[in-house]
Design a protein around this nucleic acid. Structure first.
Lengths: 210, 210
DNA sequence: ACGTAGATCTTGTCATCGCCAAGATGGCGG
DNA sequence: CCGCCATCTTGGCGATGACAAGATCTACGT
């Protein structure tokens, strides 16, 4: 028996197959049957593991948010280390660039993160893991705003609105890039320029706030 | 014959049925067969008219952009009239609020506007109508920026980057609202506050630009 | 050691979907 | 009056997601 009847690690194997299909052919290529074929199991095996297609997508969204969270945190840490934590606003810009960079590099993965209607997790299996993963991702941004506030780069007060503003701006740019609504070349400085403008505007806008 | 064999206005009837299904049940409810059922014709009739499902969605996207363009233009005109064209930046804010308002009021309609992978127009039928409709929509924003520039509210220069910045911000907020990534109540002032912050930041950011 | 209960995976089936081919119907110009 | 052609229908094909029922393996209690 090359493979035991009980695969032993089918859960992980199915997710890997699903990621390959997603990055290769987009969300439409992620089919329960195609995932099963690539993993070398029967067509009903994925359903049993994830409770249906929505569950598979939900599991992928959780992993996607974890990957994105790691990249954002890494961008923050790296920038803060290089800058010697002198201007945390620059690190916040780096986080924004990492956000857009993730969307650029893995457009299909980024796309499914913002599609609640695709994922349909059975809460008896997932217990709100999706929301928790998204929350952890947002917290990276929010912590960055807090540091900026402590450094005096952003007005004091509740950090959520400012984090939301920054997130909204980065998300808008990322969505419009991945959906092809705007088209900036790989090395087009407009992307950085837009991000910079957004954050630069943020700083000056905040200081003049009522 | 209650209905003639040649419907006479099937094209419009199919689109109306499709819009009803979309606004009621989302994009997944828009099925060629369901559209045909609602219009009372056979299941293959829609394919003949639009060249497939992608063509139907493309036709809807064109109509959607036209509706959105009308609302944006109306918001601009109304605001300019009320303000006596004293502060065109306020009119630009009104356009942004109208953009987000459209996404709020018709989330499914707004969603399909930014999904190039859904629509698959046969160019022998559409001849780039989708891109033209989207361009006309963006022009409302760009013209607003030009007026703001002429009034001195925004730095002179090519208006596209500023229009892009404003569009990105509004689009990000709209997407995150429609996708449920953030949740602001219907009367939550945060929406207006975010829009105001975006534009306010825009103004002050621009003036301090290099 | 053994046997049963439950987890894991397979096989088979069904309704629905998008698409295509072929045929039926009706308007329109010669 | 006739034939052409757009319009619409009928029928069918392959693929998909979900479900039911069965086969196979693991684990745990005695």
């Amino acid at each position: 028996m090359s493979r035991p009847y009980h695969h032993g690690d089918l859960h992980r194997a199915l997710l890997q197959a699903a990621w390959e299909l997603l990055d290769e052919g987009g969300v439409d290529a992620v089919t329960l049957r195609a995932v099963a074929r690539r993993a070398g199991v029967s067509h009903a095996a994925p359903t049993h593991h994830f409770g249906g297609k929505g569950g598979l997508l939900a599991a992928m969204v959780v992993q996607g948010y974890e990957a994105l969270t790691g990249e954002l945190q890494n961008a923050w840490d790296t920038s803060m280390l290089a800058e010697g934590s002198r201007d945390p606003l620059l690190a916040l810009i780096a986080v924004g660039r990492a956000y857009v960079g993730f969307a650029r590099r893995r457009p299909h993965a980024f796309t499914i993160l913002g599609r609640p209607e695709l994922r349909n997790p059975r809460e008896d299996i997932f217990h709100g893991e999706v929301e928790a993963a998204a929350e952890r991702c947002f917290l990276v941004l929010e912590r960055g705003v807090v540091v900026c506030q402590e450094a005096g780069a952003i007005d004091p007060g509740p950090p959520q609105p400012w984090a939301l503003l920054a997130w909204t701006g980065a998300h808008g740019l990322a969505v419009m890039l991945t959906e092809g609504l705007i088209d900036l070349g790989e090395d087009d400085p407009s992307e950085d320029q837009l991000t910079m403008m957004m954050l630069l505007a943020l700083r000056h806008g905040l200081q003049s706030r009522r």
